[in-house]
Amino acid sequence: MSERSPVLFNIGWNACINCGACVAICPQPEPFISPFDTISVDRPCDIACMLCESICPVTTIDHVAWEGTLPQSPLNNRSHHT
């Protein structure tokens, strides 16, 4: 299931219910958490196990391949908060 190459997660905030299940299942050894108690969306995940996508009760997490830069998005300009 693991895609191996790093990915950047994207969260559809409109459907997110802030349940924290994605953070709970995340196997990253270091905190990989956003200021909104979701998995991080402003840095790449190099494990890419996609368990966070599997556990989401409302299927509102997806991802793109990490291209080395962050896509333009107001919610991705928050690295100083994490």
């Binding site: 299942i25 196997p27 050894p29 270091e30 009760p57 409302v58």
Partner: peptide
């Protein structure tokens, strides 16, 4: 995690609830 404890939960043991 700060202390390096094995806190990771398996996907077949975490219920996704709504």
């Amino acid at each position: 995690k700060w202390a390096g404890l094995r806190t990771h939960i398996r996907i077949n043991e975490l219920a996704s609830c709504l």
